[in-house]
Design a binder for these strands. Structure first.
Length: 266
DNA sequence: ACATTGACCTGAGAGC
DNA sequence: TGCTCTCAGGTCAATG
């Protein structure tokens, strides 16, 4: 489930491995993961060009071509990038493969095919079209700006955190993590939160996202009081107080929380 | 405005 | 073993 920290990790991986090398060819093995172009058009768009820098907005990754235009990468639920030399090392489900002039390859891998690769002529227009709000780690999103985004909103706090048009980058897993650290129940109505609650939520959001990036998104490298470690564990206990963790439906998703640290608003 | 549901996808795991 | 069912959760469209 690539959310902001995952996509930031992919961005750094692409920065380290996939830039400043001429793309000699593009092979598409499943055209359903190519959007806004046919496979042939995508290949024509990229062939002979270099990717020179990257930009991430929420869960969307963009790579600039050297003169004009961008490549968009969206990872859906199961997408990631793989850079390798020997074509035999291509992971399973590598639906799009870029062949570089240096003999290496970059693959867009996505088992469930909910992600996509697409050419982007105009980055600003694309971001507007996707209706992406400010990136959740944008330095401009300080405490006051965060509180302002919450103004006039009436829904549940978890839905609000995951609304990509409000703030881009947070999904199911990290919204649970952020709310746990803030001690706020996922179904709490936004108007129930006062300024201090929102300031605390904002601080936890930044801290959780940065910590996950620093851990390169590896659960075992995250602090022991992170819930991500326990997501798949049945009957897991709260790392803070030992209360058995619970699940509720919120925004049509399964939210994990601690009934003791995150008391119900009802 | 907000919440819910189903569709898109496919593999893992459960239950029979 | 192998079948069927449910679940995972990013995003969009349709509906209440």
């Amino acid at each position: 489930m690539p959310e902001l920290p995952d996509v930031e990790t992919f961005r750094r991986y692409l920065d380290a491995n996939g830039l400043d090398q001429t793309i000699e060819d593009v092979a598409v093995y499943d055209e359903r993961v190519v959007k806004r172009a046919t496979p042939a058009e995508l290949a024509d768009y990229l062939r002979g060009h270099c990717l020179v820098r990257t930009y991430r907005r929420g869960k969307h990754l963009f790579a600039a071509l050297e003169e004009a235009g961008w490549l968009e990468l969206h990872f859906g639920m199961t997408g990631y990038l793989a850079y390798y030399r020997d074509p035999g090392d291509a992971p399973d489900y590598s639906h799009v493969r870029f062949a570089y002039a240096n003999g290496y390859h970059l693959a867009f891998v996505d088992r469930r095919k909910l992600g996509y690769v697409a050419p982007v002529r105009d980055l600003q227009a694309c971001v507007a079209e996707l209706d992406l709000g400010i990136d959740a780690l944008d330095p401009d999103l300080d405490g006051p700006a965060f509180r302002e985004l919450a103004e006039g909103r009436r829904g549940q706090v978890k839905c609000w955190l995951m609304d990509q048009a409000t703030m881009a980058g947070i999904g199911n897993v990290y919204s649970d993590e952020i709310l746990f650290h803030a001690g706020i129940h996922p179904r709490t109505p936004l108007p129930n939160l006062d300024g201090a609650d929102l300031d605390r939520l904002h601080g936890c959001m930044r801290n959780v996202l940065k910590t996950a990036i620093d851990a390169q998104v590896q659960p075992q490298a995250m602090p022991a009081d992170f819930l991500v470690l326990l997501r798949e564990v049945d009957g897991a206990a709260c790392p803070r107080c030992g209360t058995p963790l619970a699940k509720v439906k919120a925004c049509g998703r399964t939210a994990q929380y601690c009934p003791s640290c995150q008391p119900s608003p009802d």
